[in-house]
Simulated assay, not measured.
Amino acid sequence: MPSSTLAELSAARLHVVTGKGGVGKTTVAAALALALASTGKRVLLAEVEGRQGLSQTFDVPPLGTDEVRLVSHPSGGELWGLSVDAKAALLEYLQLFYKLGRAGTALEKVGAIDFATTIAPGVRDVLLIGKIYEAAGRPRGGRGGGSKGGALHYDAVVLDAPPTGRAVRFLNVNAGVADVARMGPIKSQADSITRMLHDPRTLVHMVTLLEEMPVQESLDGLRDLEAVGLHIGALVVNQIREPRLTAANLAALDGADDDLDELLRTELTAAGLRPTGPMVKGLVQEGRDHALRLELQDEMAKEIAAAGPPVIELPALADGIEEGGVAVLTDELLAQGVA
């Protein structure tokens, strides 16, 4: 399946963000949602893993099953947040299709809800994505409402999805429920969700770092996602570290230890410092480690570039997401034409 272009990224309705654990997936999802909202769109940012990563990112109280406004942008755009819970989604589903009322609460008290969402993970995933499906297709005016021209309540939805290792199973919902629901409401909902996920306006973005394991897992994940018919968006390379050494520095690090030792002592003395043996050795080792890191980054960047999807590069944040870090990434995404 051909990869998307940056222009297609900005036109997508549903953005699914995945990646190996620890690569900054949630932060990138938040920055992407903010970038879309800054263009005047009403955007929903949703998580499904119960980690409350979004509330920590935006420094707000824990999100619940009700959509809450996180940001109002001067452009008129809005960013709303939602944390989808499997238990609450199943209770809502039972009420919608079977009108259980208080009986649903009784089932929860005896542990039947926990049992149902644990014993059938495929059904659990349908329930979780079902909330995203409802929000993405909700007409302006609310559930059951209508609007002229088919306008939707949200202009875009960003889903902070499970990590790469579980993403394919999570998004391939029809396969997940094949053994437990061959017909009926669950199967019907899984079919509807599958149509949404396979729509060209739904894109899966892969977040990675320029390190061997994240890059390999990302490339494997892209192949697996494409194999089940999903459309790939961008490869987001996060936490890129700027080189601290010039070409002359790197050449010097390749030189003989004695020459490098003498050079560093001269430079340190000129800077008003008193060089010691341990200080000089430590600086040499740190410099060579950094040079190796840059070499590895270059190798990994070539593999990423050859993968096919458009590549988006985001800088490493010295202070993490504190002090406006998400806003920095948002500006980078906008500058690269994502929204």
Rank of each mutant, 00 (worst) to 15 (best):
L152E: 06
L334V: 15
L219I: 12
Q285C: 01
K41Q: 12
G320N: 11
R140P: 05
L70S: 00
L283I: 14
V157I: 07
R274T: 15
L32S: 02
M300Q: 14
R138W: 08
E8P: 06
L263T: 11
P243G: 12
V338K: 01
P139A: 15
V204S: 05
G145L: 10
E323C: 14
Y98D: 11
G277H: 05
V16H: 00
A247V: 15
L36M: 03
R69I: 10
T330N: 04
A307Y: 08
T164Q: 01
K148Q: 11
P74N: 07
T27F: 02
K25W: 01
A103T: 14
R223V: 15
G21M: 09
E78C: 11
E267D: 13
G53P: 04
G81H: 03
R124S: 10
L171G: 03
L128I: 14
I193M: 06
V23I: 11
R140W: 12
I240S: 00
S38M: 02
V123Y: 00
Q95M: 07
V68H: 01
E242Q: 13
Q336W: 04
V236A: 00
P163A: 13
L260E: 06
M279Y: 04
G76W: 08
A316M: 05
A306V: 13
E78R: 09
L32Q: 01
R13V: 08
H198C: 13
V326N: 07
G146K: 07
Q56N: 09
L63N: 01
K99C: 10
E67T: 14
Y93C: 07
P139W: 08
F97I: 15
V228A: 12
L152F: 11
L260N: 05
R274F: 11
T202W: 03
L268G: 08
L197I: 13
I312E: 01
M300F: 07
E295W: 08
V338E: 01
E108A: 14
E49A: 09
R166V: 11
V180S: 07
G76K: 08
L197R: 02
A29K: 03
G53V: 08
F170T: 03
V126N: 03
E299T: 15
A46K: 00
L79Y: 02
L292G: 14
L9A: 02
Q56R: 15
V284R: 06
